[in-house]
Simulated assay, not measured.
Amino acid sequence: MRIVITGGFGFLGRQVAGALLTTRRLRGVPIDRLVLADRVVPSDPSVADPLVEVVQGDVADRLDEVFAQPVDVLIHLASAVSAECEADFDLGMSANVDTTRALLEAARAQSAAGGPTPRVLFSSSVAVYGSDPALPLPPVVSEATLPTPRSSYGIQKLVCEQLIADYTRRGFIDGRVARLMTVSVRPGKPNAAASGFLSGIIREPLAGLPATCPVRPDLRVALASPRRTVEGILRIAEVERGAGPGLLDGGVPVNLPALTVSVADMLTTLRRVAGDAVADLVTTAPDPGVEAIVGSWPADFDNARAAALGLEPDPDFASVMRQYLADHAAAVVAGASPRPERPGR
């Protein structure tokens, strides 16, 4: 089996690649080649793995390399993120819509030439939802809720979802879409995502650095830890089609499980787990642009469809934060180490 991951050296790309290199199988089938395609290829231990092949550059310009051998599974994670798409419309359309269509056409050509019909996993986003003045969101959102995005990023993700649905309907690919919740806590440096502060207000204080919260503390958001997100991506990539428990029924996107918390809950957890000195590094400075984007996304989800596939949300934000502390201990200053939980907490 030859698997391609676009955005293979981004945060989620590395996590997904790492999980596959650990099991060395997908759907019970051995992986013969894992292609990591990305614009930038940093020094990474995975490059030395004999299963790994690297394709460097804009993926739309490297399709001949990506499809030099038959692609059995394509996990498409490469994307321009929310705030940069809002700031630069052309960038978002090129990186998100045009690149996705180019990949789909290459996959279609492979199938038409008698090669395997690629299984394509597309990482979409909670940003496909928004509260339109003429059609407000219901209190709880499910896959049956009409997507009405309120950002260019959300529109671009929805366009790609619809393309994948039609390519699948016509038999060009076997497409499946995972709608990701905001992933928190992400390690590393801040990125250009409007939701990036949902990692920054935890990650930076734990590193002894100040952080700014650009939204009102009572804003409620839908989150998923990195581990649960990767688990969801791989589950939807590998699940077989059909009706019944544990099968992927139809071509409707799957909303990954959501943990609903308020920003205030996150900061309270930071204070409880890491202490006052750490939590006091966070200040609030409202940014209407950021709140307009993040505040348009729903916070409460019906997780039934994901649950039928064996996926569950994180139990609480304390578990998300402790996961970060365990996985990225080197990025946490000594004074921010977790404190013992008191009985009843």
Rank of each mutant, 00 (worst) to 15 (best):
P217H: 05
D61L: 15
R227D: 14
R150Y: 11
V254S: 08
P298T: 02
Q69L: 07
G335M: 10
R39W: 12
E240L: 13
R150I: 11
S79Q: 09
R241T: 13
S43E: 15
L74S: 02
Q69N: 02
H328A: 05
R150S: 06
C85Q: 00
R235F: 04
A222H: 12
P136D: 14
R339M: 03
P205H: 00
N255K: 07
F9D: 06
G8P: 08
P245I: 02
T22A: 15
S124T: 02
D316S: 11
E231D: 14
V294P: 00
R186W: 06
R33D: 01
V52K: 12
G275I: 00
G310E: 05
N96W: 00
L20T: 04
L104A: 02
Y153K: 00
V52Q: 10
A19Q: 13
S124R: 04
D327M: 13
R339W: 05
S79N: 10
P286R: 05
V254Y: 03
D58W: 03
V333W: 00
T182C: 12
D44Y: 02
G57W: 12
A178F: 05
Q323S: 11
I201F: 03
I202A: 03
F11N: 09
A326L: 09
T268N: 01
G7C: 04
A60I: 02
D218T: 13
G244A: 11
L63F: 04
T229I: 00
A326K: 06
S337F: 06
T23M: 07
D61C: 14
V66I: 12
A308H: 06
